[in-house]
């Protein structure tokens, strides 16, 4: 679709050298740590390391918790984003600030806050524990909650911007055709923000996959129950560096696969 192709002779303009040089440095800045990781990789031991219980357990927990966090973010984050973008209620600025807070807060602080709120002596967790015995910390649910807490703001921010930027007259048009507000939302609004929603969802999932601080603080660290890939890396770096590097490679591989595969397809559509 680019204007250069299709009509006439394509003319190559030389990009400014200074921009190319700075861009190249920027790219190298991201490549070097990756190279460092690859150089340290014990390639011959890799198959054995990757199929060890620690890695397989962490991989399973990471996939379950990050996907669950992305889905929960979808269910609650989209309506929240819609509310923030469209409904002018008192305290909206405050709510928006609170929702985006986990993006700037150190995750450890978020984890501590979750513990004080949802732990068994917490503000909300206390009464729940006392009446039902249900406990979030030190369980997979705790990991999912920590992941969601840290990752959902990415979905809300992306989707809110999309809700705010689409032409609302399309919704008026749908309403005039007899569509109820929910039908308008489902058949017109949601499809219109589709690309942003997909992009936001990938971002949210990726953030959940890499979550460390809040998970360690809120959900603890136990192999097979709460130890996700990043936690396994942290523990491994100080005791078994080979395993830690192997796990890091797994994280890099999964993330690259998704980002390369989906980014162009979804975000490129805009």
């Amino acid at each position: 679709m680019s204007s250069a192709s299709g009509r006439g002779r394509s003319v190559r303009t030389r990009p400014p050298t200074i921009l190319v040089a700075l861009a190249a440095l920027g790219a190298v800045f991201f490549l070097i740590p990756l190279a460092g990781l690859l150089k340290q990789t014990p390639w011959s031991d890799l198959p054995e390391l990757l199929t060890s219980d620690v890695v397989l357990d962490a991989l399973r927990l990471s996939l379950i918790s990050s996907i669950a966090a992305a889905l929960i973010s979808l269910i609650f984050g989209v309506p929240l984003a819609w509310l923030l973008a469209r409904v002018d209620f008192p305290g909206r600025r405050f709510v928006r600030a609170v929702v985006t807070l986990p993006m700037v807060l150190p995750p450890v602080v978020g984890g501590a806050a979750l513990l004080f709120a949802l732990g068994r002596r917490g503000l909300v967790g206390g009464p729940i524990y006392d009446s039902t015995g249900f406990l979030l910390p030190f369980s997979l649910w705790g990991v999912i909650v920590a992941n969601t807490f840290v990752a959902m703001p990415f979905l809300v921010v992306t989707v809110e911007a999309a809700f705010a930027s689409i032409d609302q007259r399309y919704e008026a048009a749908a309403a005039s055709l007899g569509a109820s507000r929910l039908t308008v939302f489902r058949r017109v609004t949601l499809p219109m923000i589709g690309p942003s929603l997909a992009g936001g969802l990938v971002l949210t999932w990726a953030r959940a996959l890499g979550e460390f601080g809040a998970t360690a603080t809120f959900a603890g660290n136990l192999q097979g129950r709460t130890q996700t890939l990043p936690l396994a890396v942290f523990v491994g770096l100080e005791s078994d560096r080979g395993a830690a590097i192997a796990i890091s490679l797994v994280l890099v591989a999964i993330s690259m696969l998704v980002l390369v595969g989906l980014r162009d397809r979804w975000w490129g559509q805009r």
Partner: peptide, 19 residues
């Protein structure tokens, strides 16, 4: 065991908070 904390401070924090 329910959790293996990163260091003794992190462990003490959770015990102190009765978690």
């Amino acid at each position: 065991v329910d959790t293996n904390e990163a260091d003794v401070r992190a462990l003490l924090t959770k015990i102190g908070a009765d978690e």
